[in-house]
Amino acid sequence: MSNVTKVQKEKNEGTAVPKVNKKETKKAENSVINVNDLNLWYGSNQALYEISMDIPEERVTAIIGPSGCGKSTFLKTLNRMVEMVPIVKTSGSINYRGNDIFSNKYKKEYLRTKVGMVFQKPNPFPKSVYDNVAYGPRVHGIKKKEVLDQIVEKSLKDAAIWDEVKDRLHENAYGLSGGQQQRVCIARALAVEPDVILMDEPTSALDPISTAKVEELVQELKEKYSIVIVTHNMQQAARISDKTAFFLSGELIEFAETDDLFQNPQDKRTEDYITGRFG
C-alpha cells in the first residue's frame, strides 16, 4: 500500500533549484474530479467562466496563470473552501468520484476529508507537532491514543519530516523552520488519508532548499494521491506536474500533458505566457 517511504531520497545539497526526477507514471488515466461548466461569482463580479476539466487520478495536475486569473479560486472551489467568502455563488457542477459536491446530501465536511488542502503560507496550529497532525483524525472522532500515535508517525513519515521532528513531537510547531512547518502541514493533511490533495502555491513562502524538498515530496505523494497544485512558477509546474492547466482572466485556456503544453502550446495566449511575453 505504501511504498512512499521506500522511495530513495535524492540529496540535493548545494544546488539552489535542484532538478527532481519526474517519474513517468503510465497508468490508464482515470479521473477523480470532473468539473463541468463551472461559473463562479464574488457578489456581482464573475471570477470563473465555464470551466470544464477532469482531474486525473494519482497524477500531479498543475494550474498556472498570472495572478488574479482565478487559479486559486478554482482550487478552493474543488473542496468548497471558496464558500468561506459568504458572497460567493456558483453554477455548473463538480463531481468527486461521481458525487455532486454541491448537493445537499454530500456534506462539505466529508468532502474535505477526501479532498484535503495545503495552503500558501505554512499555517500550523499554535499546538504541538503531534496535536497538529492528530487534529484531523480527532475532529473525525478518532480518540484512541495508540491509533493516533500510529497515524501521526505514518503521516510524518509520508511527509518526509519524521526524522526531523520525531524527538520534538510535543514541542510547539511554531518553533520549526518555515519549510518544516509546511511539511508538517502536509503531514496534517495526509493524516486523514485524503484521496486528493489541493496545494495552493505551497512553496511560495519557502526558501529554495525547502522548496526542493516539498517538490520532491509531491513526486513521492502522487504514488498514492491525486494532487492538484497551483503555482505561479512555470518551471515548478514543468518540473513536477504530469498535466498542466493554463488559466487566464477566469477562463481555462488550455489543459494538456505538461510536456505538450510547454513544448507545443496550442493557444497563442498560452504561448505568450510561457514564453514570458506577459504576466
Binding site: 500500500m1 505504501s2 517511504t5 521506500k6 476529508t113 477526501k114 483524525p137 473525525h140 472522532g141 478518532i142 491509533v147 500510529q150 497515524i151 505514518k154 513519515k157 493524516a191 486523514v192 488519508e193 484521496d195
Partner: peptide, 15 residues
Amino acid sequence: SLRSEGNQLNVQQMI
C-alpha cells in the same frame, strides 16, 4: 510502515 500495513490502519474507513 509494514506494521501499519499489518494492522490495517485505514483512517478513511475509521472516519
